[in-house]
Structures are given as structure tokens and as C-alpha cells.
Write a protein that binds this DNA or RNA. Sequence first.
DNA 1: CCGTATCCTCTCTGATACTG
DNA 2: CAGTATCAGAGAGGATACGG
Lengths: 114, 114
Amino acid sequence: MMGTAEEVCASSCTVDYVQAGLRVLEGRWKLVIVSHLFRNSLLRFSELERLIPGITQKMLIQQLRALEADGVVERIAHPVVPPHVEYRLTPDGLGLEGALIALDDWARTRHQPA
Amino acid sequence: MMGTAEEVCASSCTVDYVQAGLRVLEGRWKLVIVSHLFRNSLLRFSELERLIPGITQKMLIQQLRALEADGVVERIAHPVVPPHVEYRLTPDGLGLEGALIALDDWARTRHQPA
DNA sequence: CCGTATCCTCTCTGATACTG
DNA sequence: CAGTATCAGAGAGGATACGG
């Protein structure tokens, strides 16, 4: 009933799920976006744009939409003129912290074997 | 213009490091390869090829080389004819397990909110 | 057995211009 | 302000054939 692969890592960790997790954060910008939302909890489109030098509007909206579709980010549009839209992490998105810390630890320790 | 990023997630987790960690496992095959090496600890090229349906020799060697360059897997070539080459996780590669489990937990719980 | 070498396609990324 | 539309380049991924 589960996915296609019964691939398993050491203990009981399914490749399909890990791959899904990785996919959510894949690419050049998603992690940067998410990290800003971790720190600020509520950001407007233009604020994200300013906080992330080098990103284009196209890439920003594209990645935000992907994160939204994955249930990581929530889009809050206020019906005013001019438009006012805010983004924040969903509860589910906040749950990513453990995985991010684990990856951080791993990548960090290999450069500081001490 | 990828800054040296002092981007930080909730507590003290650096974007650069997390991104490095993600990059190591990125793509369609690396995770599958690593998971097989987690379970079998020592596999020949041809064994991996057989264990991973659909992968081409090019992709297999390409991903193995990338993982090797990242210090995650080790290539052991026995100087015999015909060639005999084995792959296994490095101690560093084994350290990925925590991150994989964290990602797995996250991806798994969002599909089973119960 | 363990790879290389080509060639081709498709996705990702980005620059630029425009709009409700 | 918060997006869309278009076009183009680079690279990841893959099919197939060949080589030590």
C-alpha cells in the first residue's frame, strides 16, 4: 500500500519519503526563503525580494508557489489596493526544523572534524 | 552573487551548510544508491546496477563519482582481471543517517496526520 | 566487468518587459 | 505591490554504442 519502493535505509527510513522531503527544499532558493520565514515568521513579497539579493520576481513567486503547493508555506492575501500579500510557514513547514538542523550538523561537522 | 550567507534558520542553522547537505543527496539516484549501501555495506558496481532498476551505467557511475567526491562513498578497486570494484559508505557517509531519519519523519508524518 | 563517448531532450534558471 | 508573459542559455538526465 505504501509507495513503489521498499528501499530502506539503515533502520526504517523509506527512500520515497526522504526523497519527497528533499524535493521540497531542492533548488537554489527554497531553503533561503524558508530560512527567512523561520526568522521573521511573516513577510511580504517585497520584503522577501529585498531580503534575497539576486532573486528575480519570477523565481521568487515560482518557488513560493511550489512551497505553498507542498504545504510548507502559506500565502495570505489582504484584499486591498494596492495589494498586500504575506507569507509564513505553516505548522507543517515549522516541522522542518529538525531535518534542517540534522543536515546542518552533518555538513558542519565534516568541515570541522574536531 | 551567492552571498557567503549568514542566513540562519530558527536556532543556529546556516543556510550554506544545509544547502551543502541537500546538494550531496540531490537528484534522482543518489539517495537510492546510498540506501542500498546502508543496507548492504559493500556492493559491486554490477550489484548496484541490478539492485536499481532503470538506472543506466552512465548515471550510476556519475552519481557514484559525485558521492565519492563528496566523501560519502568509497570506491575500492581490486586490481584483477576482469575488474572487481566495490563501493561502500565512508564513516562520514554513515553520519547521514540522522538527517535521513529526520527528513523521513517529517515527510512521513505529514501524510499520516493521525 | 566496469566503465567512456556521443548525442539528444527536458527542466531549471534567469533577463527583460509588461499588467491588475 | 505583487505578480505574468516570453524568450533564451546551461546543465541535469537519459538512450545507445563502444573500449580496456
